[in-house]
């Protein structure tokens, strides 16, 4: 069992919580309800969760939506993705939401489930899977 995964840190911060895995690229403009903290195509709540997804796509307005999540208190605890892009980096820097690029994304998502906890401590170069 792997339980530690190396990450590149884009925005650092403590993060501990249950994961929500959306194994896809997300357009924050159009596919997210920022007032509820919901990913619309799958109708899943990311508010208060560790949001795991491939990356962002679509309009650069997406950065403002990510900023809005923090403002409305609907933000995920942190984001763990496979690929960084300007929309996501801009949004998470402005909103001060931790963002990590996990090196071994495909193995990482196979090792997590609803019953696991994801943990990152500020300053460490990895995320841990607990449970």
């Amino acid at each position: 069992m792997f339980n530690k995964f190396v990450v590149d840190i884009i925005v650092d911060g403590d993060c501990r919580g249950k994961p929500l895995v959306l194994d896809t690229y997300i357009s924050f403009f159009g596919e997210v309800d920022p007032y509820k903290g919901i990913h619309l195509p799958t109708n899943s709540l990311f508010k208060g969760r560790v949001m795991v997804f491939r990356g962002a796509r679509g309009s650069t307005v997406g950065s403002y939506i990510i900023y809005g999540l923090k403002k409305y208190g609907t933000n995920p605890l942190c984001m763990i993705v496979s690929k960084p892009d300007p929309i996501l980096i801009t949004g998470t820097v402005l909103a001060e939401i931790p963002l990590f690029i996990v090196k071994n994304y495909d193995v990482f998502i196979k090792n997590i489930s609803e019953n696991t906890i994801i943990l990152h401590r500020k300053g460490e170069g990895w995320v841990e899977i607990i449970g």
Binding site: P34, Y64, G68, L94
Partner: peptide, 13 residues
């Protein structure tokens, strides 16, 4: 029309 409340809120902040 594009940036909506989140964009307005950001610019205001």
């Amino acid at each position: 029309t594009n940036i909506g409340e989140p964009g307005l809120g950001f610019i205001k902040d």
